[in-house]
Amino acid sequence: MKADAPSNGSGDAPDEAALNIRRIRSMLAIMFLLMTVYALYFGRDFFMPVILAFLLALTLTPIVRFLRKRGVPESISATLLVLFSVGFMTTAGYLLSGPAIDLINNAPTIGQQVSEKLNHLRRPFEKFMKISEQIGAMTEPTQEPGVSKVVVAQSGILSQAAGSVLSGVTSITIVFVLSLFLLASGTMFYEKIVQSFTRMSEKKRALRVVYDVEREISRYLLTVSLINAGLGVAIGLGLWALGMPNPMLWGAAAALLNFLPYIGALTNMLMVGVIALISFDSLAYAMLAPAFVLLCNIVEGQFVTPMVVGRRLEINSVAIFIAIAFWSWMWGFVGALMAVPLLVIVKVFCDHFDGLANIGNFLSAQQSAVEDEEDEDGDPAEDKAKIAA
């Protein structure tokens, strides 16, 4: 009996070809991702105001839709909303600029006062600080005689400030003008997306997905913005009742920083604690201000937002920290503020496509996994009915 020859036939060829195709697709996906990150990083002056305009338009879309049902044309409602946004931001910036500039100018004095208040806590560490200073002096290279240091002259501070102001004004103008066109155009933008498909079934599915994503994201952004505004008002009034200086500034900071989950609340609480420490004589009374800020953030994060927004759009903490770190590296503080809204957009988009369901599941909070386990432990007939639906 003859032994079977090793199989080198056509059966292995399709598997190898499919494997090569998968490898090529993976490499192309990685290259596309790297090129996208490269474009976003070096094209931040273009992409950042454009994305901000889309986020602002999505935030104001529910109001435009509500007024359209009452007979108000989209162009009129969009113009009024954008003008109101510009006026509100201009007024808020003007009112808060004075206390913010004073706080920045008095930063060295504030640091010295805090150091004096906490001087007794630093005494155990003074010996270690002196040792580190001596080590730093020993390791510093000595300058040889006859060798002079060369200092490169920096460009003028005024010219840098003027360039930054001009760039900021240009970006803000782009944000509001583009958001005005997006709001005033109504459904034209979505119609253009649908027209790119050929089959009627694909058009219907694309239209349903586009409207569902737009509706969920716009409601989320508007709701979260209103919740953050309410949080800022509550913190501002509470700090005013406690006698904190510039309570309006800290309320506005709380509303803005609350777009950064965990990090924003902690930052605002620390800043309020530092100012309260130098503003009040009693240490126990000074701790009331940061404690009140912490209480407001706990109530907002654990009760108000889950009850109003719902837990379906909750994002897991790991994804939030990664997104904040990534976008803050890309676009600084503005990018960090946009990190969570962009993450929610990605999650909602992934939930509407079966091929991206794994990404949406990864971005979901632990609560969704718990609900899935409860569904698996439930009635099998009920589960089959849900799957069939």
Rank of each mutant, 00 (worst) to 15 (best):
L95M: 12
A153V: 11
I263T: 09
S317N: 13
I30G: 08
I24P: 00
F362L: 09
L166M: 09
S167L: 13
V213I: 15
L356P: 03
V344H: 02
F88T: 08
I76F: 13
W327L: 15
F125V: 10
G238W: 02
H120T: 14
C350L: 01
M200P: 02
Q154E: 09
L342E: 02
L34Q: 03
S328R: 12
V86S: 01
A92G: 12
I275T: 12
A137Q: 12
A284E: 14
E214A: 15
K192L: 11
I63P: 02
T187Q: 09
W240T: 10
D4G: 08
F47V: 03
V210D: 04
R205Y: 13
A234V: 11
I131E: 14
K384Q: 07
A388S: 10
E144V: 07
I345P: 01
M271T: 12
Y94F: 07
F66R: 15
V150E: 04
K127Q: 08
L183H: 08
E126L: 06
A289V: 15
T170D: 03
A336F: 14
T79L: 14
P245L: 00
S185V: 07
F66Q: 12
P380G: 03
S328N: 13
Q113C: 07
D15S: 09
Y211E: 11
G93F: 02
Y41E: 14
R208T: 08
S148T: 14
L237S: 07
N358K: 09
R122T: 10
M138L: 13
L266T: 12
D375Q: 09
D379Q: 06
F66A: 12
L239M: 05
A385S: 12
M31R: 10
M244C: 02
F292M: 14
M271G: 11
G236P: 03
